[in-house]
Each structure stands twice: as C-alpha cells, then as structure tokens.
Write a protein that binds this DNA or RNA. Structure first.
Lengths: 237, 237
DNA sequence: AGCGCACTACGTACGCCGTACGTATATGCC
DNA sequence: GGCATATACGTACGGCGTACGTAGTGCGCT
C-alpha cells in the first residue's frame, strides 16, 4: 500500500515510444501476442513476466520497460484479443445486433478461455475496448433511450455473457480434467452431493437434480439467458 | 498436470474427523474464520497458507492436514460467509423474495469485498451453498416452472449481482485507493480518455460521457438491473 | 557540433509464495 | 498391546513479482 503511485497510471496513457533513447526492440503488440500465445497454450497461470520475456528473447527486467506491472500485461492481452471482433454494419434490428455480438463474445472467450478470469470485473478502456463500446452504441442507435440506459444494457449483457461462458469453461475443464469421466463424475456426485441431497434436508434441490431434462444444451441455455436480459430491458424500462 | 488426482476431490467430501489419530487441534470453522478475518482486514492477497497457519499458531505445513490445497481454503471462506444469510419465511411474492435475497448478497459482498473474486465463476456445493439454493427454490415455489428454469433464473440473478457488485467494489477501491480524488480522477480521464474520445473516432462514446446525468446512484442502477432480469424471465419465458 | 539526459537493456537479489517430503509423536481399533 | 492411521511441523525446492544498480545508446537542445 505504501508504494502506490500518487496518480493512477494506465498503460494506455503512456506513449509506446517517446523518441528519446534507443529504439525499443519490441512492440506492445508483439508482447501481447506472446502472452496470449502462452495463455492459450499453457493456461493463464503460465503467464509470468519471466516466461513472456524469455519468449521474446529478452531479459526479464527489460520487459518492465514496456509493461510496468504484471497487471498491465493482462490489460494488453485483453486488448489484443478484443481486436478479433468483427464489426459488421448494424442491421437496424438492435436486438439481433446485440445478440450476435454476444455470440461473438462467447466464441472469443471459448477461443481464449482465460478471458473471463482476466476481465473480472471491469472491461477497462483500452483502445479496442473503446472501439467495441462505440460499436455497441452504434447498434443501439435505433433504440431511443439516453446513453446511460444503453450503457446499462451493455453492462447487463456483458455480465451475463461473461458469467455464463466462465461457467461453461469451468465445467468443461472439470470434465476434461482427467481420466475420470461421466461415470466417476456421477459416482462423486452420488457419493457426496447425493448423500447430502438424499438426507431429506434439501427436498427441492433433490427434486431439481432428479428432474430428468435430457442432456443439457449449453448453447440453448446461453441463448435463453441472453434473450431474457434483452427482453427484460424492454419490459422493465 | 501430472500430479492431478485421479478422482476429483472436494473438501466437503472428506470428513472433518476420522476418529483415528490425535484429536485435531483446530476446526474447519476456526480456519475459515481466520482466513475471512485476514481477507477482510488486509485483502485477499494477504491470505496465504503461511499467514493463516501463523494466525492459528500452527506450523505452516500442519494446515495442510486440514486444507489439502489453497483453493480449498477459498472454498471454506466462501462457505463461511455464506452462513451470514438470513432466510426469512418466503412471503409468497417470489419477485420480492428474490430481490431481497439479492440485496442481501450485495450487502454480504460489500462486507467481504473479496467474495466476487473468489466465487468466479462457480458457486460450488458447500453446505451453506446447498442451504442457499434450497432457500432460493423455496422462494420460487409459487412460480410454476420446471426446476431447470428456476435454476436458470437463480443463475441469471447471481450473475448480475456478482458482476455489478464486483464493479462497485472495483470502482470504490480505485476511488479510495490513494490521495488522488475526484479532481485528479477527472484530470486523468481528460488526459487520456478525453483525448481519445475527443479525437472524433468515438462520437457516441463522447456523447455518452458528456451526457450529464447527475451523480450516479449505484444502488438505483443495481435495482434497475435486477428488476430487468426478473422481468425478462417473466416476459421471455 | 556536441553535450546531456532520457531511454533501453539486463543481471542480481530480496522476500514472498505453494507445497513435496520426511520424521516424530499421539491416538483409536483389533 | 501393537499397529495402522492421524496429527504436527521443520526443511527445502522451484517458482514468482519486482526494486535497484549499472552500462550503453541515440534524440533533442543549445
């Protein structure tokens, strides 16, 4: 707490190149790309200052010339993958536009499963975040509401997308985690959860778990949740 | 990845006491309470196995008899504070019941600002989580829908609560962070964000930022978001 | 033209972290 | 009573973020 900067420092506020001194041998884009590559391949916990520096054939401490704190490296990563969005011309149907943007976000997060974790909880104001927000707002042009309300809609959609996809990813990782598959998963669920639930203390929960609903279609769940958020915005003003 | 357990281990599945060997000198509840105390006072990053062990006057490695992995310590913490919920008899008006439970969650998270971060992304199945879920479902008894749908409603509400409160907390921390207050905050916002926004590349964003809406009432924003989720559930099936 | 400063580069070192492992000791069950 | 199984805990390993000091480089100003 003592050594905190007296003024908030945002990496986007510092110029990538000042003109003085030797030319930097690397660019922010290179650094971000290296970090994204490592995170995609080995998980976000494998992203360390040492490792990214090594990846770029530079000394560990040299990286600190570009990225003052590790947290800023995360910001670079988020900004980099945010550049993968496609921004088609809005159709005029804001609901559809918002939904398809959300679907893009979902795909993006599945491509980079570390995203939800690093985005918690704020989206920040990186260059690509600004572009993204501007595009969201342009999709909402047909909606006659103050910008404040539009921002709240965007926040609600982002919230639900992030949480749901984070859940999908977590579930997927647990399932794929190791040789124990559906069988053992069931075994464990019976062993503990089943034991608790069958104790009679949680009758509704027991009913919910035994309610046979066929295999869960995650995509359908996602779509429903999204549609509810959008319709809720229309319905509840 | 090599040393992962062949079978998923959940701390709630291992008995707190087996009967064999010396009496454990501490209880899970003690341990959880110590960790919560430290996290509340010094932030969640101050929660280390060493520190919690020291807090309980035990050797670092003794703690591992109770808590096999640090991640499990986090689970204990979440479960412990989940015990703070009050569960009044449902009124029969499920909307109000859900809303007031969400308000409780918000208050709980403000009391323990590390909660949103540790809960990402899954709520888990700790004892108190089961109690919580069962209560949620009991509030939804008047709603005639399959349990699957009710679970989706709970998930949607939880999602929006967690994200919004996480944002409130993050904003608050940034504001309270150090001696730079509103003035400098504005200065920075002008310096960078203003520079970008005023560049003309983000006309709607510029309009949104300059839209004068008076001071933001975070609680009102929260209530609106919540109401939209609930109404969306009613409206969009 | 040349000086000086801001910048890059990077090695070393500090104080943390999670936790594997080995050993000594205490206890409940057969 | 003896043995299997707990607890208790010190030591040690390999990693982390990053403060700091030093050396070299090239732009900008006088």
């Amino acid at each position: 707490m003592a050594g905190r900067p007296a003024v908030p420092e945002v990496i986007w506020a510092r110029p990538e190149r000042t003109g003085r001194g030797p030319r930097p041998a690397h660019s922010r884009a290179d650094i971000a790309a290296a970090a994204v590559r490592v995170a995609d391949a080995e998980g976000v916990d494998a992203v360390s200052m040492r490792k990214i520096a090594a990846e770029l054939d530079m000394g560990t401490m040299s990286l600190y010339n570009y990225v003052p704190r590790k947290e800023d490296l995360y910001e670079l990563m988020i900004d980099a993958v945010s550049g993968e969005y496609a921004y088609p011309e809005p159709t005029g149907d804001w609901r559809e536009d918002v939904l398809s943007l959300a679907r893009q976000t979902r795909a993006l997060m599945h491509r980079h499963p570390w995203m939800p974790r690093l985005m918690s909880p704020v989206y920040g104001f990186s260059p690509n975040a600004l572009t993204y927000l501007e595009y969201c707002l342009s999709c909402l042009d047909p909606l006659e509401r103050p910008y404040g309300a539009k921002m709240e809609l965007i926040a609600a959609v982002t919230s639900v997308v992030t949480t749901y996809v984070a859940n999908e990813i977590a579930t997927g990782e647990r399932t794929r985690s190791l040789p124990w598959s559906a069988e053992q998963e069931q075994a464990v669920r019976i062993a503990y959860l089943g034991g608790q639930v069958a104790s009679g203390r949680y009758p509704r929960l027991a009913a919910a778990f035994s309610e046979d609903s066929g295999p869960i279609d995650l995509e359908a769940v996602f779509e429903r949740a999204l549609r509810r958020v959008v319709e809720g915005f229309v319905a509840a003003g």
